[in-house]
Amino acid sequence: MHLLFATSIVPDGALASGYEIANAAIIAALRRAGARVTVIGFTWPGKAAADPENTVVLGAIDVRTENASARQKLAWVGKALLSGLTFASVKLRAVSDSDVLAAIERAGPFDGYVLNSVQFAGAFEKLFGDRPSIFVAHNVEHLSARENAAAASFFQRLLFRREARLLETMEERLCRRARFVFTLAEEDRAALGVASNDRSAVLPLVTGAKAPAHEGVRHIDCDAALIGTWTWQPNRIGLDWFLGRVVPHLRPGFRIRIAGRMPSGVTSTHPGVEFVGRVPDARAFVRSAAVIPLISTAGSGVQLKTIETFELGLPSVATSRSLRGIDHRPANCVVTDDPVDFAKALEAAAADVRDVDGSAFHRRQVKALDAAIRLGLEKLVPARQEAFA
């Protein structure tokens, strides 16, 4: 079976974000199941596809809002309003429908599409109706847009509300047309209206094909460490909750390092908080902390930072939202949504560091991931036979 994996940004091997880690895990699982996978989409500027022989590149593009000039942002907004597309999808309209169709033809004969999230599928939606498809819903995007609206300024609130309306109808269409839907969290199946086992399955994810190697005794040089794409609104909401509601309850000497690009306006008066920007080795950074705060309070889908923490066997304190899409919680993970209890649990974990073996968690995730992928492909096979009989 030959599948065309349609995505906004093709893998470049860097695995710099949770989205890219998830894509790599899903593509690897499809190939383990015996499918030939060709990826189609854009690259980041200055980046090359990690697997050029099995990738069709539409061009280079930077779709990150925080990197765009004010003029570019206004152009995207205007184009979105005129076209009826979402803000996220209109950024990908850097090429025409005919360009994408020509690229699809270059991919050679194939049996079906894997439509990876709504952004690319929404930008070129009418081009993907000629073959059966599987839709991968990384998040319930319309619910995330509603949450973003509640935390935004007046003008941004209007834009997010518009996104939510458009995304809800788009997600409904993509799910209805798909022969099968993959989500990354159990609750997302019901939110998308595909909770039946004949219609959908959850993909448990991993951060790599193999479990992280055990690296011996850790050198701990801070109490807690966080790393993330804080310019992404759901992550920003969680960070604001942590800094505003949890950190004030931590003792002054509690040392917290926060890595990743920081949006304007994020500050903390706590003397132990340090914003360190980009770090050269994300895994080494989190391993240097006594405990990992898992602070998601918004969004849908799965938190890849939670999965990585569990694979590494590191102690953690997590909100309940940080555990969505994960069936098994290690013994050294404390769960609470109360800010005061969260702070107390962080201090307790930092005072008594207890690592565990994360390889069992990784094996469990891979086994469940491969089973879910096989189920989806089995649903696509009769669709292929019916379409081309």
Results as ranks from 00 to 15, higher is better:
316 S>Q: 08
364 R>P: 13
264 S>Y: 06
145 A>M: 13
169 T>L: 09
100 V>Q: 00
23 N>C: 15
309 T>Y: 07
230 W>T: 00
145 A>E: 05
359 S>A: 08
165 R>D: 13
281 D>Y: 04
261 R>P: 09
257 R>N: 08
99 D>I: 02
81 L>M: 14
63 V>D: 08
67 N>H: 15
92 L>S: 01
133 S>R: 05
323 L>F: 14
141 E>F: 07
152 A>V: 06
198 D>S: 14
246 V>H: 09
302 V>T: 15
86 T>L: 05
276 V>R: 09
181 V>L: 04
251 R>Q: 03
243 L>Y: 03
247 V>A: 07
244 G>C: 07
380 L>G: 13
220 I>H: 14
95 V>M: 04
222 C>V: 06
14 A>F: 11
127 L>Y: 12
185 A>C: 11
3 L>E: 06
60 A>R: 13
355 D>L: 12
347 E>L: 06
140 V>R: 03
66 E>R: 07
213 A>R: 15
274 E>L: 11
153 S>T: 15
368 A>D: 11
58 L>G: 03
339 P>R: 01
173 R>C: 10
276 V>Q: 04
153 S>L: 13
187 E>N: 14
327 D>P: 13
97 D>M: 01
51 D>K: 11
225 A>T: 02
222 C>S: 08
255 R>P: 03
244 G>R: 03
94 A>L: 04
10 V>M: 09
102 A>R: 15
234 P>Q: 00
374 R>V: 06
89 S>T: 01
24 A>D: 11
12 D>L: 04
65 T>P: 02
279 V>H: 03
249 H>N: 05
319 T>A: 00
309 T>N: 01
184 L>H: 10
379 K>D: 12
197 N>E: 15
170 M>F: 03
308 E>W: 06
389 A>K: 14
21 I>H: 12
131 R>W: 03
121 A>P: 11
195 A>C: 11
194 V>N: 01
128 F>G: 07
317 V>H: 09
183 T>V: 05
286 V>P: 13
163 E>C: 10
38 T>I: 05
125 E>N: 10
96 S>L: 07
154 F>L: 15
10 V>K: 04
354 R>I: 07
160 F>K: 09
204 P>M: 08
158 L>E: 05
270 H>Q: 10
309 T>P: 13
55 T>N: 06
288 S>Q: 04
179 R>A: 03
274 E>Q: 15
27 I>R: 05
207 T>P: 12
284 A>K: 15
150 A>V: 11
257 R>T: 01
309 T>I: 02
212 P>H: 07
297 T>D: 00
98 S>V: 14
17 S>N: 02
82 L>T: 10
130 D>E: 12
225 A>F: 00
267 T>D: 08
279 V>L: 00
57 V>C: 03
357 D>Q: 05
